[in-house]
Write a protein that binds this DNA or RNA. Structure first.
Lengths: 198, 198
DNA sequence: TAAATAAATATTTAACAAAATATTTATTAT
DNA sequence: ATAATAAATATTTTGTTAAATATTTATTTA
């Protein structure tokens, strides 16, 4: 008999958990299918019942990681305790904190990032689109409340996103100290917020 | 007799010219000292009279490239036809144009960037410091003319620089189209300018 | 004697076989 | 019939040596 949908999903999730752990610790290249399988108490061959190949496991990890990031942002965006200004501030600083955490623990994670940037850019692209969409929710709220003066919400969301790329994208996480990034993220988002008013 | 200082400098410059050409076309790794030497009509060994080793030639190329970028910015900063707002706009858009040009022609240049990022980060750091310093000149001018309200010029320069990193740093030059980057650079700098007033 | 070359040496890369790993297929278990 | 494993095969990585290249040293040139 066929496994229940949820069971299949649970197994996929377990595979991604274990794989991500290893990718982060030892790197994408050094991690073997046999190791992932062992962590999941199954045979290497059986992994292929859940993922097409190793790269798809890598892509799955990346997607899930980005999904978590989106959920973190969603929480901020949907909060009804925070005003738009505070939401933007949290967006910049909390996501930075989350990213830096991830990369300072999992020191080999950048290898997965490089693989995704090189071979699966469409995943990044799709993530960015959703992030922009969430950003635009904050902007719209600010327009409705009369705080922000914005001609084109979607375009402006792009600009805000671009201005924060250093703190939200993985690229520079290990090139600057968290303290430095925190200070800069705070400064940039304050400038941007001022720019959205007026 | 010893070569005149200017002659030595001219030869060094010629070496960097030829090396940069090859690094950009064929990559840092694939370019040989013998090839660079031949381009300069000299023997491979003689290159070592001018540079300690191949990596120093790579570093020299990077430094010179960054120096050119700084001079481009300097020209904008020191212009007496442009107001601070226009200077910031030109800074964002002209530098983007310059960088994208460089990277669309010299398709293997990213390899040199990776080498510098990995092994000679202090060069990047020093460049960024000087760039910030130039940025702060614009901000100071804006303060003097009463256009900008800024508490700490140097800190604010850092923030403006951070917000423009996508358009000024090499990293994303080949990940997005020039048109897209142009539009975003324009949007970001306009938001920032508005933020500097108020 | 400075500047350059050519020859010598050290280091790195490339080619190729062996080993490891990814993926597919045949077989077993539920 | 589905899920899983184990065995078989395809692909990739690794280790090794030869070749290429970087760097240093000895000689030559101006």
């Amino acid at each position: 008999m066929k496994l229940a949908e949820e069971t299949t999903e649970a197994i996929k999730n377990d595979i991604l958990d274990k794989a991500f752990e290893r990718f982060g610790h030892y790197g994408f290249g050094k991690t073997t299918m046999a190791e992932i399988a062992k962590d999941c108490d199954m045979s290497a061959g059986n992994l292929y019942r859940y993922f097409e190949n190793k790269k798809e496991i890598g892509a799955g990890c990346a997607k899930r990681c980005m999904q978590q990031k989106l959920e973190l942002i969603q929480e901020i965006v949907r909060s009804n305790k925070l005003q738009p200004d505070a939401k933007l501030k949290h967006l910049a600083l909390d996501v930075l904190e989350y990213m830096h955490q991830e990369f300072s623990n999992q020191t080999a994670l950048m290898e997965l990032v490089d693989f995704i940037s090189r071979e699966r850019w469409e995943i990044v692209h799709q993530y960015m689109e959703q992030e922009r969409s969430l950003l635009s929710e904050i902007l719209s709220e600010g327009i409705r409340s009369g705080e922000y003066k914005i001609a084109d919400v979607m375009e402006t969301a792009k600009w805000v996103q671009s201005s924060l790329i250093k703190f939200i994208a993985p690229r520079y996480m290990d090139a600057f100290s968290l303290e430095e990034l925190r200070n800069e993220a705070n400064g940039v988002i304050e400038l941007i917020i001022r720019g959205l008013k007026a």
